[in-house]
Design a protein around this nucleic acid. Structure first.
Length: 422
RNA sequence: GGAGGCGUGGCAGAGUGGUCGAAUGCGCCAGUUUCGAAAACUGGUAUGUGGGAAACCGCAUCGGAGGUUCGAAUCCUCCCGCCUCCGCCA
């Protein structure tokens, strides 16, 4: 959410930003509704002031005088009820409109409509070359009994999967390495809820826009698509001290995505699934653009380093305006080489939000002057399971169908090759 | 799932219909004192919002949303959360 004062004073900038993101927003309507809101508010405040004044008089008055004033007050009251009703209607629309106003993308964000327009900013390693005919991760994993997709579909439906045997060992090894790596970077590990209330999803900017992407369960609870939701909700309605910032969390959680708009995409394998597990980096920092930019680069670099540790070719792209979410100011995607598809596939997204999320979540801190400020927030994937398995398995496959274990993972897997003679 | 209790400022804790935005204590900030500090004393210490150049003034906020009343922290309803006991359970 943006500050209404900011929106009013910078309507043109906000409109340009929305256009760059290809998000429709009716700012003129919002400003008109806001005018009405202010006017009604002032009217009502004046009436309440009158009411307060007269109520105090009533205490002192006696008998007939008192009865007279009370009668007058009853009149005033019915007039107020009308104003309140009007204001309530206006506020409903005001709230709805406010939630649709996107954050403004950074100047450095390129124009474009979709992920096809994202621009490469960094490339690391060369696409893996094989001296043999390489296989896809599905074939490899099935042959090594690391996963089961047929039974996955039988039990869990479309996009269901089981991880098995060395698939689980490999997963566990990645988690161990991630914990060690990211905690060494100063992140506090947390296991966070996936089952969350609506407030946390509105606060992070997933609702009301993306209702269709979320699983909703009974009792107005939702299954979050990322640990970011609960981790940001953690400090909801809190006032932090300047000294405890930045807060750096490494959140682990199961993640659930309906992938409603993705029917027919990535129908097989572990690239796109409804249920997965993710370590997520989340940062809350002081309210400065320079600080946000600094931490954004840091978050991105952390993930790049982790991938370099696994020694998988990747590139980093800066997302174009049309590929940015409502609250995001700027976003980098890190994409790993997938030999089976001869392309890079996203394994993580690093974004910063300025105070867009913290305004909605009411997360503040006291600055050096003792003034309350909304903190800034950022997040980036640390590592997603099982998607990361795709790139590891495909890039590390060997001619005999076995899979070499990346050096960094060997201590945690307990062997250097998956498959073949043990 | 059943029964009961509770939710007040940074914290502790009064307040059960009328100058209550809220006693008191602690904490915090400033001053006096001191070579300096501690102690003591004095004063100040919520947030949001509207108006105003400012001083200042209005409105709102005692978990949240409604309601009763001229007037609600206080009474009523629903919701959320916490605690205790019983039941169930990994």
């Amino acid at each position: 959410m943006l500050d209404i004062h900011f929106i009013r004073e910078n309507a043109d900038i906000v409109k340009e930003g929305a256009a760059k993101k290809h998000i429709e927003v009716d700012l003129d309507r919002l400003i008109k509704v806001d005018d009405e809101r202010k006017l009604l508010r002032q009217e009502l405040d004046a009436k309440k002031a009158e009411q307060n004044r007269r109520s105090n008089e009533i205490q002192i008055l006696k008998d007939v005088e008192r009865e007279k004033v009370i009668e007058q007050m009853q009149h005033l009251k019915s007039g107020m009820a009308e104003s309140e009703e009007k204001l309530k209607t206006v506020m409903v629309e005001w709230q709805q409109l406010m939630l649709t106003v996107p954050n403004i993308p950074d100047m450095s964000v390129p124009d474009g409509e979709s992920d096809a327009d994202n621009m490469e900013v960094k490339k690391w390693g060369e696409p893996t070359a094989f001296g043999f005919t390489s296989k896809g991760h599905i074939e490899l994993m099935l042959a090594l009994d690391m996963a089961d997709f047929e039974r996955g579909a039988k039990v869990a439906g479309f996009r269901g999967y089981f991880l098995k045997g060395d698939g689980v060992l490999l997963t566990n090894a990645i988690w161990q390495l991630a914990l060690k790596f990211f905690t060494a970077k100063g992140f506090t590990p947390m296991i966070v809820p996936s089952l969350v209330r609506r407030e946390a999803l509105i606060g992070t900017g997933f609702l009301p826009q993306s209702e269709d992407d979320l699983y909703k369960v009974q009792d107005e609870l939702y299954l979050a698509g990322t640990g970011e939701v609960a981790t940001m909700g953690y400090h909801m309605d809190e006032v932090l001290t300047k000294e405890e910032l930045p807060k750096k969390y490494l959140a682990f959680s199961p993640c659930f995505r309906r992938e409603i708009g993705a029917h027919g995409k990535d129908v097989k394998g572990l690239i796109r699934v409804h249920e997965f597990y993710k370590f997520e980096q989340v940062i809350l920092c002081e309210a400065s653009h320079e600080g946000s930019v600094k931490y954004h680069e840091e978050l991105t670099r952390n993930s790049e380093e982790f991938i370099e540790l696994l020694n998988i070719p990747y590139h980093t792209v800066v997302n174009c305006g049309g590929d940015l979410g409502l609250g995001q100011v700027k976003k980098y995607d890190i994409e790993l080489w997938v030999p089976g598809e001869q392309t890079y596939r996203e394994i993580g997204s690093a974004s910063y939000f300025h105070d867009f999320q913290t305004r909605r979540l009411n997360i503040r801190y006291k600055d050096a002057e003792g003034k309350l400020q909304y903190a800034h927030s950022l997040n980036n994937t640390a590592i997603p399971i099982p998607r990361i398995l795709v790139s590891i398995i495909e890039n590390y496959q060997q001619a005999d169908g076995t899979i070499k274990v990346p050096d960094a993972l060997v201590p945690y897997v307990g062997k250097s090759v998956i498959g073949g003679a043990q």
